[in-house]
Design a binder for these strands. Structure first.
Lengths: 211, 211
DNA sequence: TAGATTGTTAATCGATTAACAATC
DNA sequence: TAGATTGTTAATCGATTAACAATC
């Protein structure tokens, strides 16, 4: 069974991380052959109706009366999430957060290969960290082309982030994970996703004091 | 003007990070006296109606025909978000991500003081990193009590996270920022917020391949 | 066949937006 | 006063849930 784009309707934003959770549940589940939406729901904490609805946005992958083939559904979810292949990723900004992400094993395990680091600090340029060479920003175009880099992680200070993003867009990067605490402008066709630790902390603080 | 809890209705989850963005906009804005919902909207990328609606969940802070007092609104948002005072935070897990968060200046700038680190790796225990001492997990209760720790950041492996969270709950921690990629159980009254880098990467991958 | 479970429709729920009376 | 802008109501939009015919 293969996922084909044709079935696709407008997907609620919140469906996307749920798909990731479903995929994880399949990896962890002991069900070898078939798994029901009810079982996936139990493993993930969502509801069975939600599981079926989310999957149905992308096609018909189950068999009424039986359930979903674990093997097939894994493949389908890999395809839908775009993690059925490797991504070459550039990491821009070699500060503490950048270095931590470089050392974080999760990226590589998921098929996201950080293959080049960039920073304008002369003390960092030329260093080799975790097998990844640190380059000057003006070498970005060269490596982006050579290594088909279409995804980037940005961990530069807020004040530098828009310029960095403009450069990334200029060399053909299509998806950016931004940790700088600032709203960035990108042209249509380029996707940006923000993780803002300060705002997450404030959210936690809010939750802590409101009942 | 002071925010009092009494006005509060059920707050949409998505309102919370927007409040943080409004607060940032106030810090950055050049409006000295008064600011309109329209101006806040322009600075944050939301709509004026949304700004007014979000603020109205917590009380009446504006003046019709005039706008909001920048100074007053700053104070109110600080109170609502719970960042009008310092939080003492324990950091559990001194791996790469934990160390990066320890070095990340944003925490301290926001009034979140990481005052103790915990890890069970004997090579890490006793070390002093960025002015923070690393302790064994079994010393948690002692420090939690002494330093009134009510918030914690968890960066241990998924397999260890539930045990860690149970201990945190046991010593009175009320809010947990969890980076371990696993769903954790907490009793009512304890708030947990998850940041899952693997899932954020998969989200980015999804966005990158879906038009 | 009887029981199980999907995919989908309709109903519900919740959040956002538009509109405007109230008010400065 | 006239113009501006809030706070709130009603309308709209979007996402979730319940229910069930279709199907294995």
């Amino acid at each position: 069974m293969t996922f084909t784009e044709q079935h696709e309707r407008r997907i609620p934003q919140r469906t996307i991380p749920r798909l990731s959770h479903y995929y994880r549940a399949l990896l962890e589940s002991r069900e070898v052959q078939l798994i029901s939406s009810e079982t996936i729901a139990e493993l993930t904490g969502y509801t069975a109706a939600q599981v079926r609805r989310d999957l149905a946005y992308f096609g018909q992958f189950g068999t009424p009366g039986r359930g979903y083939s674990v093997e097939d559904l894994k493949k389908v979810l890999l395809q839908i999430l775009g993690i059925d292949h490797q991504w070459n990723v550039a990491l821009i900004g070699m500060g503490n957060l950048g270095l931590a992400l470089l050392r974080y094993r999760g990226f590589h395990e998921q098929g996201f290969n950080i293959i080049a680091g960039f920073d304008n600090d002369p003390r960092k340029v030329g260093q080799m960290i975790e097998g990844v060479k640190v380059h000057q920003m003006d070498e970005l175009a060269e490596y982006a082309k050579r290594d088909q880099i279409r995804m980037a992680v940005v961990t530069v200070p807020a004040s530098a982030a828009q310029a960095v993003v403009d450069q990334l867009v200029g060399v053909g990067v299509k998806a950016i994970l931004n940790f700088a605490p600032v709203r960035l402008q990108v042209p249509g066709g380029v996707k940006i996703h923000n993780i803002d630790l300060a705002i997450e902390l404030e959210r936690l603080s809010f939750l802590a004091i409101h009942k």
